[in-house]
Design a protein around this nucleic acid. Structure first.
Length: 141
DNA sequence: GCCAACGTTGGC
DNA sequence: GCCAACGTTGGC
């Protein structure tokens, strides 16, 4: 299967991008939503994901790569359906791409991030991915 | 199986 | 602090 793209939210006062960079790798635990879980179960090693800071910042700050497919969330109860994936940082974005920027861009109006604002793990279409990366290169905001 | 009540997420 | 969106729970 060809590479897929994702967006994963974390509140920066709980687990910020810099922490993932410092750790070198991490598991995406604590997801308790079935749609988000299904997205994580669809991830393949080598898929790439935007790291999004929710609540504080409200911006995409970096790119990470999936290094291990879904396995049971060690922070969940035994026998629960919840899973994690393992990720590692690839690189920070040249400039963060804010939610306001994404909302203002017609090409990005159909993103999971916009259409289902509470979803913590969403799909990003290839065209959306390249567009956001282009925005992060250009934006001298 | 329906739906009201309630809880959580996350933007504003 | 408020509220919209959405998920879950529990009574019937």
């Amino acid at each position: 299967m060809s590479k897929q793209y994702w967006l994963m939210k974390s509140e920066p006062d709980v687990y910020p991008w810099d922490q993932l960079v410092e750790d070198g790798t991490g598991i995406w635990d604590g997801v308790r939503n079935h749609t988000a879980k299904l997205n994580m179960m669809a991830m393949q090693v080598g898929d790439e994901a935007l790291f999004y800071h929710s609540n504080i910042g409200k911006e995409c700050v970096g790119i990470m790569r999936v290094t291990e497919t879904a396995f049971p969330d060690p922070t969940a109860d035994e026998g629960s359906p919840w899973v994690v994936v393992r990720v590692e940082p690839v690189r920070p974005l040249d400039h963060p791409v804010t939610l306001a920027t994404i909302k203002a861009d017609l090409k990005l109006a159909d993103m999971d991030l916009i259409r289902q604002s509470r979803l913590s793990v969403g799909r990003v279409r290839p065209a959306e991915w390249t567009h956001i990366l282009r925005l992060s290169e250009n934006a001298a905001r």
